[in-house]
């Protein structure tokens, strides 16, 4: 089996890992709050934010697009809440209404703008992780070697750090407002505020990650590692740690298999982002079967319940 590994492959894996971990961290709380689809909704709904920022400023200025998309992402959560509250519509349905409408609006705007720009709808869905190492913004010297740090790696490292800090600082508040929002609210830990803080983080993470890896992998990484981790442990802190490990594993295995697997069938290589999503699914399937206590095969020691 032949495989060639370049510096660029290392950066692809680094960017993939950072994107996966950045998503997996807040994903734990989406899964536990039974709001998994909110990640899906937000990651689609940010599209008009990107498009509007582009049309207004006329340039692919990262920061403006980032802020605009994050705002639309948070608005998705707000609109969903309003429609289900005032319209006698259940939350799933109101989410479906909001994000499909926003996504469609975004697509129309992008197609309108696409006459004179390189904003590409397929790029939104699948990303371009293979191209991220080419956009080098920082060249620090380390051990006498020059590191070509890509922009995506820097942004995603920042977002990962932000998410990590948020979870560490608000661990207690996140735990109680996810488990028992009413009790939290009566104690002065406003569950609604925690909800919107979390949604803001999900929106920021989504925008930062999907430029690199596309929205499909964002959705996969928000949900799958956390859902698998939930099957492996009974403690919130370990669930978060395990989800991070599984997310990184998906990224590494994803890129390796993107290089190797197509070779078996005589093809040159395939999409790393796609393979990352596939790998996270494979990991989940393995966990679902073999998880000691909650796996289908129930391999672990039986717990006596009394």
């Amino acid at each position: 089996m032949m495989m060639t590994w370049y510096a660029i492959d290392t950066w692809i894996v680094v960017v993939g890992c950072l994107a996966a971990v950045a998503c997996a961290l807040p994903g734990n709380f989406l899964v536990l709050r039974k709001m998994s689809m909110m990640g899906d909704a937000i990651s689609h709904a940010v599209l008009p934010g990107l498009a509007i920022a582009f049309i207004v400023t006329g340039a692919r200025a990262s920061l403006t697009m980032f802020i605009a998309a994050a705002i639309v992402g948070v608005l998705t959560a707000v609109f969903t809440q309003w429609i289900s509250k005032f319209g006698k519509v259940d939350r799933g349905a109101s989410m479906g209404i909001v994000f499909t409408t926003l996504f469609a609006l975004g697509l129309i705007l992008i197609v309108r703008a696409a006459d004179h720009v390189d904003l590409d709808p397929s790029c939104v869905l699948y990303g371009a992780i293979e191209l991220t190492p080419l956009d080098v913004v920082w060249r620090p010297e380390l051990f006498g070697q020059t590191l070509d740090v890509p922009r995506a790696a820097l942004i995603l490292a920042g977002v990962t750090l932000l998410n990590l800090l948020f979870i560490v600082i608000f661990f207690k508040e996140l735990r109680i407002s996810s488990f028992d929002p009413e009790l939290a609210t009566t104690m002065g830990i406003n569950a609604g505020l925690m909800h919107y803080l979390l949604m803001t983080l999900v929106a920021i993470t989504t925008v930062a990650a999907f430029e690199a890896v596309g929205s499909i992998i964002v959705i996969a990484m928000l949900i799958t590692p956390a859902a698998a981790a939930h099957l492996l442990t009974d403690r919130l802190a370990s669930m978060i740690v395990i989800s991070v490990v599984l997310a990184m594993l998906s990224a590494v295995l994803g890129h390796l298999s993107a290089l190797i697997v197509p070779g078996w069938f005589g093809y040159a290589g395939t999409s790393t982002a796609g393979m990352m999503a596939v790998m996270s699914g494979v990991i989940f399937a393995v966990v679902l079967l073999f998880a000691p206590r909650y796996g289908i095969l129930k391999l672990g020691p039986a717990r006596h319940s009394d």
Binding site: L32, R175, I176, S178, F179, D180, L183, H230, T233, D234, R235, L236, S238, M239
Partner: peptide
């Protein structure tokens, strides 16, 4: 939810 009995009471 991944919490122990003690975790819940400590809330």
């Amino acid at each position: 939810f991944p919490v122990s009995v003690l975790d819940v009471v400590a809330m």
